[in-house]
Simulated scan of single mutants.
Amino acid sequence: MKGMMRFVLILMSVCTLSCSSTSQEGKKLVSGINPELIKFNYSQVSSTEKYLRSLGLVDIAKHDSSIVIDLKYATSDNFTGVILYIEIGNAYLHPLAMEKLCKASQILNNENSELRLLIYDAARPLSAQKRMFEVVQGTKYQAYVANPSRTGLHNYGMAVDLTICDENRVPLDMGTPFDYFGKTAGINDEDLFVSQGLLTREQVNNRRLLRRVMQESGFIAIRGEWWHFNACSLSEAQRIAKLIE
């Protein structure tokens, strides 16, 4: 109960701050918040993570230790400025998605042993999706967040948001940050953006490397977000996986 009251107070503060936040395209929803990496104490597995495991989801780091985890919604370092994952500090996926991710990691390692996959988001409880939607509801960012009344692939552990980092865990330059709300986050017009000076050729090549290793592993890219990949269709996910409440 105390945790819920704390979240409500944080949410009220965020909503107040968002009214005065910048309207510039691609900026974070909330400005003026120090994105400290504040996390739950994971010395023991939380009840929420036990629930994820009970659904058959698997911990990414335990299956491939070379994959780097930076779960953005478990911290305030995300576009809302709010910790959305309560008692979740590890990234989980459905076994089908995990198998494909391990394959992608191996392909990348075979090509360049100094590069690693870096995970920003994976399985997402519907409860967290609702909190996310509440923060953006009524703002211009609402279109970028799936309405929780319609489940998405993250809610089945069948989608992953990620990038590539070097051996020092420094992300490669992809031209925009993760969860950037602007046209240059899309993948369809990258060559045009290069000609317009909005992206560099190196940034586009980095994106294409990410897409190639993911698509060769069976993932599906989406046109609006260079970082998002689906392990299957939504209909297949609904057929073979359990909804993460």
Rank of each mutant, 00 (worst) to 15 (best):
Ser65Trp: 03
Cys232Thr: 03
Tyr51Gly: 01
Leu29Asn: 12
Glu36Lys: 13
Thr22Gln: 09
Lys72Phe: 09
His94Ala: 06
Ala146Lys: 12
His94Cys: 10
Ile222Arg: 12
Leu57Arg: 04
Ile187Asp: 01
Ala104Phe: 01
Leu55Glu: 01
Trp227Pro: 11
Arg223Phe: 02
Val8Thr: 08
Ser105Ile: 07
Val136Arg: 02
Gln142Asp: 08
Trp227Gln: 15
Leu55Cys: 08
Gly224Glu: 14
Met4Lys: 13
Asn206Gly: 09
Asn155Phe: 07
Arg131Tyr: 04
Gly186Gln: 08
Arg53Lys: 15
Glu49Thr: 08
Lys50Trp: 12
Tyr180Arg: 03
Asp173Pro: 04
Gly182Asp: 07
His228Thr: 04
Leu93Ser: 05
Ile67Arg: 06
His63Met: 09
Ile107Tyr: 12
Gln238Glu: 14
Ala159Thr: 06
Leu55Lys: 06
Asp166Gly: 04
Arg212Pro: 04
Ser31Ile: 00
Leu153Arg: 02
Met4Val: 12
Pro125Ala: 04
Phe133Asn: 07
Thr200Pro: 00
Met98Ser: 09
Gln196Trp: 02
Gly56Asp: 11
Ser235Leu: 08
Ile33Thr: 01
Ala123Ser: 04
Leu243Met: 06
Leu57Asn: 02
Phe7Ser: 11
Phe79Cys: 10
Trp226Glu: 13
Ile107Pro: 10
His63Gly: 05
Gly186Trp: 09
Val82Gln: 12
Ala104Lys: 07
Ser43Tyr: 10
Glu245Asn: 15
Val14Lys: 14
Ser43Asn: 13
Ile83Leu: 06
Gly224Gln: 14
Glu36Gly: 11
Ala123Pro: 01
Glu87Ser: 07
Asn205His: 11
Tyr85Trp: 12
Leu96Ile: 15
Asp161Asn: 02
Leu84Lys: 08
Arg124Gln: 11
Leu57His: 02
Ala237Cys: 08
Gly218Cys: 07
Met214Ala: 09
Thr75Gln: 06
Ser31Asn: 11
Gly157Met: 01
Val8Phe: 09
Thr22Leu: 02
Ala97His: 08
Ile222Ser: 08
Gly175Gln: 08
Pro35Ala: 01
Leu57Ile: 03
Ser113Pro: 01
Ile244Asp: 00
Ser47Arg: 13
Asn168Met: 14
Cys232Gln: 07
Glu245Trp: 14
Ser47Asp: 15
Thr48Asn: 13
Leu96Pro: 00
Cys232His: 04
Ile33Cys: 08
Asn147Glu: 04
Asn188His: 11
Asp173Thr: 03
Ala159Asp: 03
Leu118Ala: 08
Ser149Glu: 15
Met98Gly: 05
His63Asp: 11
Leu192Asn: 12
Gly175Tyr: 05
Glu167Thr: 13
Leu192Arg: 14
Cys165Val: 10
Thr75Asp: 03
Glu190His: 05
Ile107His: 12
Tyr51Pro: 02
Leu57Glu: 00
Asn147Ala: 00
Leu101Ala: 06
Val170Ala: 05
Asn230Phe: 04
Ala237Gly: 08
Arg53Gly: 07
Ile119His: 04
Ile164Met: 07
Glu190Leu: 06
Leu37His: 09
Asn168Trp: 13
Met174Cys: 03
Phe79Gln: 11
Asp161Phe: 03
Asn188Thr: 06
Leu101Met: 05
Ala123Lys: 05
Tyr144Thr: 14
Gln238Phe: 03
Gly152Thr: 12
Gly182Lys: 05
Asn90Met: 04
Glu236Leu: 14
Asn230Trp: 00
Ala231Ile: 07
Pro35Trp: 00
Ile33Asp: 02
Phe7Ile: 00
Gln44Tyr: 09
Ala143Lys: 15
Thr80Trp: 05
